[in-house]
Amino acid sequence: MFSVTPVKDLVLIGGGHSHVIVLKQLAINPIPRLRLTLISDVYHTPYSGMLPGYIAGLYKFNDCHIDVQALANLAKARLLIDRAIGLDLQTNQVLCANRPPVPFDILSIDIGSTPGTMTVPGVQQQAIPVKPIAKFLDHWDKIVETVRENPREKMRLAVVGGGAGGVELTLAIFSRLQQIYGLHSQLPENHLELHLFQKSDRLIPQRHPGVSQRLQKLISSRGINLHLGETVTEIEGKSPHSIHCESGLTVKCDRLFWVTQARAATWLKDAGLATDDQGFILVNDYLQSISHPDIFAAGDIATMLNHPRPKAGVFAVRQGKPLAENLGRKANQQPLKPYRPQKEFLILISTGDQQAIASRGCFRLGPHPLIWQWKDHIDRQFMNNFTQLD
């Protein structure tokens, strides 16, 4: 009598950068007797590298969003539009917000992160967090529409967080709204009031000081109010909001975007997964949970125990193929392959006006249109992997 290999359930939670690559890889090289399920709370997952360009009006929605349904169909995966809210690790089930638990034999998690320090008084009620991105973009599209319909009303906006994400967002907001206001020649120059708060004494402190200096000079030259060394302690009142800082500084604004250091969803640690101090899943060199060998994680939600790296999209993209290979090896009971991330990594910071700054280690260049063209080419190449599925 011949034994039949049982069907195994591989469940992917989240449609992040690593998981869309996994889906594409499994579509190209399907694994026999592996049933694939994707749990995603959106039909279109955003590519973070192009979002500043979208906010600045340089891209359309479809340019920077991946059609998760089409990708799932290509990989012959079942797509469940829902939000994971917990794990039952005794029975190997994913708990969802709106449907019965989803069983798994192998699980992979790529759900990104959310802005940290949301416990600051008033932030939960008044601030617009940049993640989840889909909700943030809903808010942004409404702001753009408000400015279009009421261009003579002054708009006061603030961004809290001076990392790469906060800087790109601030410059993109400025460029987009200035485009709209520029259509109305009778408006005063200061019709847009924009503030950027950073608790450190310089922007993007993880990069070379020369990058910080260039960005600070650029931001100031555009009339954006830069508040360095300012820790926001409270957001008071509905629009207009009063932003209170530890120093005593108070600034009023109509909308407030929160782009501070990332944190993880609390249900991961609550389920019993080993996590770091911020709640991110601790994984080994195989992108495998150090506490639960049937669970893998990648992207912002994971911290590599032996190779900790910043939360940056470049690592999520690079982890995609190694993750796909190890999920396949796990399903086939083969030895896993280690993955070692690069130590130095290039970032291309868009400045909202079809220019960008390049930074890697001590190297920095720009802002310059050629660097934007380089970045645009890289981003469009990545997206072509998921828009040309035939």
Rank of each mutant, 00 (worst) to 15 (best):
V251E: 09
A356M: 04
R263W: 01
L177M: 09
E153D: 12
N384E: 14
A172Q: 13
K135S: 11
I31D: 00
Q213K: 10
V144D: 10
M50F: 00
S3P: 00
V314C: 08
K238Q: 08
Q355G: 09
G328S: 13
P322W: 08
L10T: 12
K142D: 08
N326A: 13
P335L: 14
G49S: 07
P367L: 11
E168D: 08
P367C: 09
V159Y: 04
G163N: 08
W258T: 06
Y47Q: 02
S359H: 06
F382K: 02
V283Q: 09
T146D: 07
K337T: 15
N62S: 13
E230A: 14
F104L: 03
Y59M: 09
E168L: 06
R152D: 15
F104Q: 01
T170K: 01
Q93C: 07
N98W: 15
I295P: 00
I224E: 06
N284F: 11
H19V: 07
L26I: 11
L203H: 04
L80S: 11
I357H: 00
P209R: 06
F2S: 15
R318D: 15
F382L: 08
V7G: 08
D353F: 02
V211H: 01
R263D: 08
L249A: 10
F2Y: 11
K217M: 03
Y339A: 07
L192K: 01
K76I: 09
D300Y: 03
I13W: 10
H19M: 04
Q354S: 13
R152L: 11
G16F: 15
T5G: 12
T387W: 06
R380T: 04
Q213I: 05
Q186F: 11
L87E: 06
R152T: 13
L305I: 01
H195G: 07
F280L: 09
V144L: 15
I290N: 04
G86W: 00
L80P: 00
